[in-house]
Design a protein around this nucleic acid. Structure first.
Lengths: 200, 200
DNA sequence: GTCTATACAATGATAGAC
DNA sequence: GTCTATCATTGTATAGAC
């Protein structure tokens, strides 16, 4: 009993294919610019299949968002358990997030587009929560470091913004200017931020 | 001879109103999700007026992009002429950009959405050029500071990424999480980056 | 330059057979 | 669960009068 999709198990079902295909298209072109016809064509199913599983284009959209929230939670839980100094843990956060993005590339691009791009006639949803969770994670790591006395005591919000800014901007630029893409950049920028730009 | 639009001169013409209205709508909802019907309705003109001045929805879109490129160039030219230390000039850049954004809010949000959001069935255009120009500006200021010996010699690309990351991320978050918005944040983050997070 | 009226393709969604 | 065929609506764009 073999299957043809190259993946491990027998999830050749239409529902999974629709989820993945729609995520790709929403990432590539955006929600409003993607038609259900395109989705079902690329997924190799007919239109009523989509409406059978998800009720509407919006329903499919929400199903993807739920999936994304789960993925983020799993990654953050891993990050919280990582040991080491604050800097070590920030670097682990960077690496783990980058790894997650490689694994769920379309999902990341789609969510990112929804957070920072225009609301494309998209239904109500608290997209900012993804960012809030990231800020909270950084603050939590930083708070641990302050209480253990290993790091300068600065406003936690400020540090969280700085640490996330370096990661987020680097990831953005990897997409916007691929010719400058560099997976090591976030760590180097963090190093720079720890040392400071001033002359010693 | 007075006019009713509150602005200085007699530019009550349909073309200007269409440009501004379309910019607002593209910023609010995105290109694909905005219909020409909505644009002309809010602008208070009829459909053929739009097609008369801009030939198509795309033509209107391109006209807005040209306008945006001019605005950015003007602001950057001002920034290049500002005097002071590198840090002074970075801060002036932050302030001048923030001022520009306040003045052309919809234009900024629209462009930003195009750079970082999904291509919403939008015609070909080198949106990344806006980011490239910003990076170049920061590098130029930094290079001046290095040659005058006032600042640590670090890879210019790295510094440019760091300086822009702080500004860009702060501006993003002002939009995404308005409850945390703070116009002073970019400067404080820059201060932090100059000093470094490490204990002295 | 600006209008009314309309052409015509594409959209999201469904009915009903299998 | 999945199909074919079709619906009502909305989309961009234009013709032709003024």
């Amino acid at each position: 009993m073999q299957n043809t999709n190259g993946r491990g198990s027998l999830e050749n079902n239409s529902r999974e294919r629709l989820l993945e295909t729609a995520t790709e298209l929403f990432a590539e072109k955006g929600y409003a610019a993607t038609s259900v016809r395109e989705i079902v064509e690329r997924a190799g199913v007919s239109k009523p299949v989509l409406y059978y599983y998800f009720k509407s284009k919006e329903g499919l959209f929400y199903a993807i968002l739920e999936w994304a929230a789960e993925v983020q939670q799993d990654i953050l839980n891993e990050i919280f358990e990582a040991p080491g100094t604050v800097k070590d843990r920030f670097i682990f956060l960077y690496r783990r997030v980058q790894e997650g993005i490689r694994e769920y590339q379309s999902l990341y691009i789609m969510i990112h587009g929804l957070i920072f791009g225009p609301p494309q006639g998209v239904p109500e949803y608290d997209f900012a929560s993804y960012q809030r969770h990231m800020l909270d994670a950084v603050k939590r790591i930083y708070a641990d470091g302050v209480s253990s006395g290993e790091i300068r005591h600065i406003d936690a919000d400020e540090v969280a913004f700085l640490v996330l800014a370096l990661l987020d901007f680097s990831l953005n630029m990897d997409v916007v200017l691929p010719e400058l893409a560099d997976p090591q950049r976030p760590e180097r920028l963090l190093q720079l931020a720890f040392q400071g730009l001033n002359k010693r």
